[in-house]
């Protein structure tokens, strides 16, 4: 397993022009962020703060207006093809292809990488088994529950054993018990794989539960706080949650976040 490269976001800016009004909207305004290899970072922020735009830019589907994202010495946008099989995504909805069985969905990224058929099948089956779906490999998405479909989506992401995993509100639409269970599995597998994981979420409990770090985004993805969760004792998680909430409301870093210990 190779060590995933460091992710460096420098002076990142994204401006959209609204089609109807012609006005410019600054979605991300000069963001600086460094994500260390194998780190699990949760990005929290209110709706419309630029989290999803950041996600799209991380996976290389949107070009920066200014600034850069570098993963190692490569850019996910300019060196788009380089990251085939090195980066995988889990979305809010499972986004499974309805005409493919669970197995065929899980092996999709391996097909795109041109892996031999045997390897595709073997690896997809392995990940489906790890996610407890060994008996449902031939089931179509509409035959599975929401939680099971999301497990297939996670298996699809892990099938390529990516260096970088991105999850955009991946557990937000599930019931609390299923979400917690899937979150734990996801985290455990990410650690097993040695992947760097970036989780976009609006749920503070989720961010605190999974993140080594929490980046709190204000409007236009302004980095309001960069929290190392392991510096906070578990019994003060409630206070941490309140401090993040206060930060999001005031759009200024809460003083409690400065000196956690």
């Amino acid at each position: 397993m190779s060590i995933p490269p460091t992710i460096e976001v420098r002076g990142l800016r994204k401006v959209f022009r609204q089609a109807t009004t012609g006005q410019s909207v600054v979605a991300i305004d000069r963001l600086d962020l460094t994500i260390q290899p194998k780190e699990v970072i949760a990005i929290v922020g209110q709706t419309g703060c630029g989290k999803s735009t950041f996600f799209d830019m991380m996976i290389g589907l949107e070009a920066p207006t200014e600034g850069s994202i570098h993963i190692g010495d490569k850019s996910p946008y300019s060196d788009f093809d380089y990251f085939r099989g090195k980066m995988a995504t889990v979305f809010q909805q499972d986004r499974l292809l309805p005409w493919r069985s669970a197995l065929d969905n899980a092996k999709l990224p391996l097909e795109l990488m041109g892996r031999p058929e045997d390897e595709q099948r073997e690896r997809a089956l392995m990940w489906l088994n790890k996610l407890g779906l060994g008996q449902f490999t031939n089931a179509y998405p509409h035959e599975l529950s929401g939680g099971m479909r999301q497990r297939v989506a996670i298996a699809r992401a892990f099938a390529v054993q990516p260096d970088i995993l991105l999850a955009d509100e991946a557990f937000g639409h599930l019931d609390e018990v299923t979400a917690a269970e899937l979150r734990d599995t996801f985290l455990q597998l990410a650690r097993e794989c040695g992947s760097t994981a970036i989780l976009i979420t609006h749920q503070l409990e989720e961010a605190i539960a999974v993140g080594d770090r929490i980046a709190v985004f204000g409007k236009s993805a302004k980095l309001l706080a960069d929290i190392h969760v392991n510096l906070w004792p578990k019994e003060r998680y409630g206070e941490l949650r309140e401090a993040i909430q206060a930060t999001l409301q005031s759009q200024k870093a809460d003083p409690r976040l400065m000196q956690p210990a």
Partner: peptide, 27 residues
């Protein structure tokens, strides 16, 4: 759009994009 977005995130070639997503979707 969600399916196109998902597919693009796995970085298919143009041919793969049509063969694995667009064609089956429009059958």
């Amino acid at each position: 759009r969600e399916l196109r977005h998902m597919m693009q995130s796995f970085r298919p070639t143009t041919v793969q994009f049509f063969l694995k997503l667009m064609l089956p979707a429009i059958v």
